[in-house]
């Protein structure tokens, strides 16, 4: 049912955990639906995502997409990260079963929330 890549990221998830003094935090989903993705990023002075970690509650697709998105954006600029879509994450995993495309494919949304949070904090700090 799942691709080998999904199973690999599910069984050996990359970048699980939290970041001390994260620059931005994003969370999407809720426990009632059965999926929550929490992503933390650390952004350096050149607007590069230096570090990224996740915590996810959910099925294999939810965990694998979270893991994959962290790999895709580590070392990328915020601009590049903002352009990553849920679909692109699914494609990087060689696809997801159709039913999972809607409910469990939210990792890029969580990343974008984290970036938004960072931007908002930066704004307040410079204001």
């Amino acid at each position: 049912m799942y691709s080998q890549k999904v199973m690999d990221h599910f069984m050996n998830p990359r970048n699980v955990g939290k970041i001390d003094l994260a620059s931005g935090v994003g969370e999407v989903g809720n426990p009632v639906c059965g999926d929550i993705m929490h992503i933390e990023i650390k952004v350096n002075d050149e607007d590069i995502i230096e570090d990224i970690k996740f915590n996810t509650f959910g099925c294999a697709a939810a965990i694998a997409t979270s893991s994959m998105v962290t790999e895709m954006v580590k070392g990328k600029t915020l601009e590049e990260a903002e352009r990553i879509t849920n679909r692109a994450v699914a494609e990087a995993l060689d696809g997801l079963p159709e039913v999972k495309m809607h409910c469990s494919n939210l990792a890029a949304d969580a990343l974008h929330e984290a970036i938004k949070d960072y931007m908002a904090k930066r704004e307040t700090a410079s204001a």
Partner: peptide
């Protein structure tokens, strides 16, 4: 979440089921 439990059990050769949404 139940599906995650099932897939991990399956990787140990243990087959079960769940009533989770997935």
């Amino acid at each position: 979440e139940g599906e995650s439990i099932l897939l991990m059990l399956d990787s140990f050769g243990i087959m079960a089921s769940s009533g989770s949404a997935c």
